[in-house]
């Protein structure tokens, strides 16, 4: 049947794939390069940087050093705790607020919605001086709680905005049917609304997670101390200290990359669906 395929279509497909393939290579190769060299001896890193680790060049000395000289497992634990707890709180509080804004007519409804939206455009970092003061006053310096509080405030505006838009689409009949059956407002929220917003949860979780996991600023100013570093700060400090030790540097970068890479490949479908769902317009 190939007589029915237009010739220019076929050649166009080749060009399109060439373009996409080259860009994919540009996006992935640098990361790949770091990861393969982390598994080489120092000699291997310099003599054949672009080759895969072979029997002669394979070595885990970088990883041994990193694990001996730093607390990577602690950094991971810190990052994961902060991120997971923050996402949980943001989702719950944002869903509650979004529900109130989208469902109830009360004085100042629109004003409050706008007030809560300010934080979408204004970066929370600009208030760092006072945030640090506040955290000092609360006695929370060098605690993960400080990070969670700030990140929750940072994540709420966009989360509320997305969820409000989403809740507007929940059919009115559902809630009214429940009210007619005499179900209380809290029960309506927890038993009917929360399960319904599940599709939007992925989107919100993504938008909340990326900036938190990757943040250097707040860990640096609020919790830079021993044992409280997040993975981003931990890597930054470690590399700053061992900058000339290529094995250790490459290994520490690899340790920071691999878990994210695995998580990304597992959740990329949800994540990309969240990004492309058109929730953010």
């Amino acid at each position: 049947m190939y007589k029915n395929i237009r010739k220019d279509d076929a050649s166009r497909a080749v060009i399109v794939h060439a373009v996409l393939l080259s860009y994919t290579l540009l996006a992935l190769y640098p990361v790949f390069l770091i990861v393969i060299n982390a598994f080489k001896t120092r000699k291997g890193i310099f003599s054949d940087p672009m080759g895969l680790p072979g029997p002669k060049t394979f070595s885990l000395e970088g990883f041994t050093k990193v694990l001996a000289k730093s607390d990577f497992e602690v950094y991971f634990f810190n990052s994961i705790s902060v991120t997971v707890i923050t996402i949980g709180i943001v989702l719950l509080l944002a869903a509650m607020a979004a529900w109130a804004i989208s469902e109830y007519e009360f004085p100042g409804n629109t004003v409050l919605a706008l007030y809560l939206a300010i934080g979408i455009m204004v970066p929370i970092r600009l208030g760092s001086v006072s945030i640090l003061g506040l955290i000092v006053d609360l006695g929370l310096v060098n605690t993960l709680t400080a990070l969670v509080l700030v990140y929750v405030a940072q994540g709420l505006p966009l989360a509320i905005f997305i969820l409000t838009e989403f809740m507007h689409q929940i059919p009115k009949d559902l809630k009214e049917a429940a009210r007619c059956d005499g179900v209380g407002e809290f029960t309506i929220f927890f038993a009917i609304i929360l399960p319904l917003i599940r599709p939007a949860v992925a989107t919100v979780a993504v938008f909340t997670m990326i900036p938190i996991w990757n943040d250097l600023w707040f860990p640096l100013i609020l919790a830079p101390g021993d044992g409280k570093q997040t993975i981003t700060l931990g890597v930054q400090q470690f590399i700053g200290q061992y900058v000339t030790d290529w094995n250790a540097v490459l290994a520490s970068l690899t340790l920071a990359i691999i878990p994210i890479l695995i998580l990304y490949l597992i959740f990329s479908r949800q994540l990309i669906r969240g990004l492309t769902s058109g929730a953010v317009k």
């Binding site: 509080l93 944002a94 509650m96 607020a97 529900w99 109130a100 804004i101 109830y104 009360f106 409050l112 007030y115 809560l116 300010i118 934080g119 204004v122 929370i124 600009l126 208030g127 760092s128 001086v129 006072s130 945030i131 003061g133 506040l134 509080l149 700030v150 929750v152 405030a153 940072q154 709420l156 505006p157 509320i160 407002e185 809290f186 929220f189």
Partner: peptide, 25 residues
């Protein structure tokens, strides 16, 4: 009561850790 209870936690954290620090700065 529910409206207040639904709005308060988010609004308070947001105000204390975002809006107040911005204004205070």
């Amino acid at each position: 009561l529910p409206v207040f209870a639904f709005l308060a936690p988010a609004t308070i954290i947001y105000t204390v850790f975002m809006i107040y620090p911005l204004l205070d700065s």
